[in-house]
């Protein structure tokens, strides 16, 4: 079973690396690049919302700040927006810090509400500020137009995000994050500084969402506040992607992103204006019948089968 899993992972990596050599069609590559971006956002959200239980309704704030960090470098200073891939994640962390330090001290829905407000505040702020070029947004002339290039950048960014998240989750920090999600009082009684650890989940979550934003700016080359700080298309979609794929699973957000983007595209091209409705209904059905998400349900099934075989309870993977 272990060898099989390892082989599967190596195969996956090999496929991911050689895929753009096989699929050369720009449209298909475009779809995959979007999936990468959404998988990064979902994986980041999942660390905080899935593992730590701190639901954010405003990850667009981090995404938008990452995107604008890249765009504004070019707009004001003529610096290559690729530096935004460095600046964006850090800028997102900086704006996450005050929210975390204040809202995480309080019990209840304060963090979720604070994040919701943060996303909207940034949207309105960026629409009205001259510095950010207001509602007109920012257009850049990309130096590189090869889709294959963006594919590999996206793949690397996603690999980094999943890798770091995996290391966090499978360490002492991960145990503490899940403990906080399961019962904050119990966690405190075990000596876990809950506010600190929630921030330790928030910071990387903001960081990688900012990275996705910067990548988006570089790839799509145009942003405006209503696109990148969008509540339903970014903040809520981040949650949907994770719920669809599997909350608190390593691969869930990536699987969720793939399904979301692909189904969205298929419906958009075949169903015309009914696509939003059908898409919405389908997502509801999936969440209703697969409450653990697709990867979550598979894990449960695997656990169930393993238990039958060993005749003992299988460990719960966190």
């Amino acid at each position: 079973m272990k060898n099989f899993n390892l082989a599967l992972k190596i195969l996956l990596v090999v496929i991911a690396v050689i895929l753009p050599l096989v699929i050369k069609a720009p449209y298909q590559l475009h779809i995959i690049i979007l999936i990468f971006i959404w998988a990064i956002i979902g994986t980041s959200w999942n660390l905080l919302g899935g593992y730590t239980g701190q639901v954010s309704f405003g990850h667009a704030a981090f995404f938008g700040v990452g995107a604008y960090a890249a765009g504004l470098l070019q707009f004001h200073l003529g610096v290559s927006p690729w530096w935004g891939m460095l600046l964006g994640p850090f800028a997102a962390m900086v704006i996450s810090l005050p929210i975390g330090l204040i809202a995480f001290r309080l019990r209840g829905p304060y963090f979720a509400l604070a994040m919701l407000a943060l996303g909207e505040i940034f949207r309105l702020l960026f629409i009205n500020l001259a510095f950010t070029n207001g509602a007109k947004g920012i257009l850049i002339m990309p130096e590189i137009t090869s889709k294959m290039f963006y594919y590999y950048v996206g793949l690397s960014a996603l690999a980094l995000t999943i890798g770091i998240t995996y290391l966090i989750v499978h360490s002492k920090i991960g145990f503490y994050l899940v403990s906080i999600r399961e019962d904050q009082d119990a966690a405190t009684s075990l000596g876990i500084p809950t506010t600190l650890y929630k921030n330790l989940a928030l910071l990387p979550s903001a960081f990688f969402t900012g990275l996705a934003g910067a990548l988006y700016m570089n790839y799509v080359a145009f942003i405006d506040p209503n696109i990148v700080f969008n509540l339903s298309n970014i903040s809520v979609m981040a949650i949907m992607v994770v719920m669809l794929g599997g909350v608190a699973t390593t691969w869930g957000p990536t699987v969720g992103a793939a399904i979301y983007i692909i189904l969205g595209e298929v419906f958009r091209t075949t169903l015309g204006s009914a696509n939003v409705l059908v898409f919405g209904v389908l997502v509801c059905l999936i969440i209703l019948f697969l409450p653990n998400g697709i990867v979550g349900e598979l894990d449960m099934l695997r656990g169930f089968l393993a238990r039958k075989k060993e005749g003992a309870a299988g460990g719960v993977k966190i």
């Binding site: 403990s179 119990a186 009684s189 000596g191 876990i192 966190i318």
Partner: peptide, 23 residues
């Protein structure tokens, strides 16, 4: 107040991590 969706072993490990960082 059990850590509900964690196994018994993981519950106890969550306590043990106070004195060590090694899994």
């Amino acid at each position: 107040k059990p850590l509900k969706r964690m196994s018994v072993e993981e519950n106890v490990m969550a306590g043990a991590f106070l004195r060590t960082s090694s899994m």
